[in-house]
Amino acid sequence: MSKIVSIHSFRGGTGKSNTTANLAAQVALAGKRVGIVDTDIQSPGIHVLFGLDGVSMGHTLNEYLRGEVPIEEVAFNIGDHTGDVSGRVKLAGQALYLFPSSIKGSEISRVLKDGYDANKLNEGLQDMIKTLNLDYLFIDTHPGLNEETLLSISISDILILIMRPDNQDFQGTAVTVDIAKLLLVDHLHLLVNKALSRYDFGHLKAEIEGVFDTPVAAVLPLTEDMVENASGDIFSLAFPDHPWSKGIRQVVDTILKIG
């Protein structure tokens, strides 16, 4: 059965979109049919990692929510349009589809001003899975807790909560973990990102698992290499031997084992 995987964080700047793109790409590379939907309609960004801009992305989730196009017309086939950067080119021919949100200021304004039909959003998410026969649908959410976020958590089989080893993240993540448990998510995992290399990752993992009573899928290092990549490519494909990429593949193993 298809799985919905939500990637979320309580605070911004945790590396959510980068992580989502990398996890989805690695799962696609494992031969699975994968969709990624950008529900961060206020501040969309994941399209950049796949080399798209406002023109090349084609139809958007915003148009679907206004009833102007069916959801399948929003699907952008990444496997057919990888570009030639060293990482993404590995996705050629893979079944990986992006459902982008518009980056046009007027479109963002319109959806924020008019609101949207939440039933239509949910139907769209379920239709994406059916129409493209997806094994996994990854949802890149807006940080914090709002209606879209809670909806995506409500319908998820797997929730990956990203946090940094930072006291502000600790408190917000605690609230989100409680809510995810109330929403009865089947598989809840924490992912620690941007951990200083000098930390003992094993110790940090054990400590966080103890505090949140929730498994930590991986601890990923803070790295200048990722900053240098500047969302120009899918990092774990471009630099497969990098410790950050190895951590991502650890999370992918966890996701694939769930089914």
């Binding site: 046009k104 200021g105 007027s106 479109e107 963002i108 304004s109 319109r110 959806v111 924020l112 001003k113 008019d114 609101g115 949207y116 039909d117 939440a118 039933n119 959003l121 949910n122 209606e147 879209e148 909806l151």
Partner: peptide
């Protein structure tokens, strides 16, 4: 399930600068 419509807001900064950004 009948989900409540996501309400719009007139307060977004995008209402003022959205078209200028475009």
């Amino acid at each position: 399930v009948n989900l409540r419509r996501k309400k719009g807001s007139q307060l977004s900064i995008f209402n003022t600068i959205g078209e200028k950004i475009d």
